[in-house]
Design a binder for these strands. Structure first.
Lengths: 253, 253
DNA sequence: GTCGAGCCTGACGCAACGTGAGGGTCAAAA
DNA sequence: TTTTGACCCTCACGTTGCGTCAGGCTCGAC
């Protein structure tokens, strides 16, 4: 069963040019050449190509693939592990870029849009999706479950419900600011008591664990959500984030 | 305050060649050229370069950067938002790649051990989780306690410990096979004696009750664990399962 | 005046192909 | 049997964002 370039290309989803290129690069030679100079591939080459595409999908460079495919299983595992490491770095870097973009957007919108901003913004339904993604990005599967539950709860909220929840949020912010203005530190009993209300209030939207509530404190400082807090007081995000971290450490298992 | 290429390069961390390239690409022209043909940059160009580097860091292509920097703030925000979206996709994709790599590594480590005839597989740490789930599914809470205890015991095992335990397992299998080859039936005294050793050996990993040991006999015939036994002899799972059921009925309360 | 550091302009190289150009081959229809 | 159209081949240049010489001019200090 001999395949021509076109057929193999169609079967595997790569282009004819790619097959030419892999031949030229010594990565995948045809089984034999016809008298006409045509390339003919067979079963073995098909399997080989699948291997190549697999590693390509994993982001390996072709020269690395060439090396990997000529090695023992053991070495392949080592290569995969090392590659995994670099992908993790990529992941962290990409996440950082997203944070940077958030900051920048916020900075640019800040001056213009800050005024007419909804104080509750950031928790409104339209923002939910973003929030979710952010949480999932940071905390993975564990977050997903809590979010799903919360969605169920919030599903049938009326506008009045949203406004009530928003009012509660505004009150929490005001209370914190008031305490801060009195000069109370983040770890004072009164501040921590309001933070507890915040923690409980947040549970309408997801189920914070110790890590994710602490993580959320960073979200407040970094992400778009910051605006929702900043709108009340420029120092609120920083102050509150500090208080939240203390709360998480002290009170959450 | 005019900067030459070298100085600007040193200040900003890019290469001289990059500055040449940006000039050529129309992305960053020097403030003026000296009579000698030298490029001279000033404050404004420095700021511009920082902008360029910022967008570059965010992963924009140079031609996009060129467009973005020539536009109003509003469009910049739009560009950032759209770019943010694509970064999120990248993030998801990268995560998927890591999952794929993990799966592959597991698969490869699995088959490699088979080849090396690590016949102990199926009781190796990686397989523990599956095993546990299986037991819990079948026997619920009662199993959970036994497993937890065993985990505690096994926690600090060195590689040598694992090998010792593996060797014991291999010996049990060999002994059973030998007896079987001699034509002894499952309920013979000799076979049952070896089965007792198997029962005791198993307690390293959990605490079989009468039901769960009998249940385990079925696991040996059905689940992935079967391979660990089958590797010794194709008939071993069946023969041994029968012997185990007899043992459970006769000896366990 | 001379030396080393710094500047310039080409121009090729890289990764992994895409995209023709120009020309031969195959299989089935007319 | 010829023709047609799909398919094959081999160059060979384009892409992105520079790195890396090569060959030659210029600057500032000694």
């Amino acid at each position: 069963m001999a395949y021509t370039v076109k057929k193999l290309a169609a079967m595997s989803g790569v282009s004819v040019r790619t097959l030419h290129f892999y031949d030229e690069a010594g990565l995948l030679k045809p089984a034999y050449h016809g008298a006409n100079g045509y390339r003919y591939y067979e079963e073995a080459q098909l399997l080989m190509l699948q291997q190549i595409l697999f590693y390509r999908e994993l982001g390996f460079e072709l020269k690395d693939i060439k090396r990997i495919l000529g090695r023992s299983d053991f070495d392949k595992v080592a290569a995969l592990k090392s590659h995994r490491k670099s992908l993790r770095k990529t992941l962290a870097h990409t996440r950082q870029l997203i944070v940077t973009i958030d900051k920048t957007i916020q900075h640019m919108e800040g001056t213009r849009k800050m005024k007419d901003t909804e104080l509750f913004e950031g928790f409104s339904p339209e923002q939910q999706a973003k929030q979710e993604q952010y949480l999932i990005d940071r905390f993975g599967e564990e977050a997903r479950a809590g979010i799903a539950q919360a969605k169920e709860r919030v599903k049938d909220w009326t506008k009045a419900d949203w406004e009530k929840s928003g009012a509660a949020f505004v009150k929490i912010c005001r209370d914190i600011i008031a305490l801060k203005e009195q000069g109370l530190p983040e770890d004072s009993r009164k501040v921590q008591a309001v933070i507890r209300r915040h923690y409980e209030w947040l549970q309408q939207f997801w189920t914070p664990t110790r890590e994710s509530y602490a993580g959320h404190s960073q979200t407040i400082e970094d992400s778009e959500l910051r605006k929702a807090y900043e709108a009340h007081h420029p120092e609120l995000p920083k102050f509150m984030a500090a208080a939240m971290r203390i709360f998480a450490q002290r009170e959450l298992t």
